[in-house]
Amino acid sequence: MSVQTKKQTTDNPKIIGRLLLVVVAMFGFGFALVPLYDVFCDVTGLNGKTGDKVNFETAPTVDESRLVKITFLASLNESMPWEFKPQQNFIEVHPGKPTTINYIAKNISSKSIVGNAVPSVSPGLAAAYFQKTECFCFTQQELKAGEEKIMPVTFIVDSELSDEINEIALSYTFFISKQNNEDLADNNLTAKSINTFK
């Protein structure tokens, strides 16, 4: 044993300490991946994530020579008791020109529900060039029982958009907001309660 003790360059507590530090750091790294992932997607536009509200100080130049077709999609998370669709299925726009279109949402349940819409743009690489100046997805939307509401989106397709992309699909999915999960649990409306029911 004595030979080994002399040979030791680092004693056990030091090794344990250092390795535990790595353990804590890697545990933190797991959580750090969450914001890193968002930053990565924002920067690269991967994953079809669109950015937050864009404010133009000067009107962007309109590229009259080009038309881009925007297709509108609407879907509901499975347990969402709403009706939700775009007023028109597609529109052709010149890049740089602000355009407003409407979605229509209707609450067909007997309760007031807060929902939030999550946008997604496909192809993912176009996401960074699809800029929304006004959108119902920026805030939570509340619909009372039976209420119908027109939900406008104003957007500009950046004229820097690659020539290879001539069609963009914009999709919204409405989710039941976590804000009202509690009240709705009794109503078998939330995903969790539906699962329990099954």
Partner: peptide
């Protein structure tokens, strides 16, 4: 193990 088991612990904690 030391590098990735904490990440697993992180994901199940989330």
């Amino acid at each position: 193990l030391i590098a990735v088991m904490p990440v697993l612990a992180g994901v199940v904690t989330m």
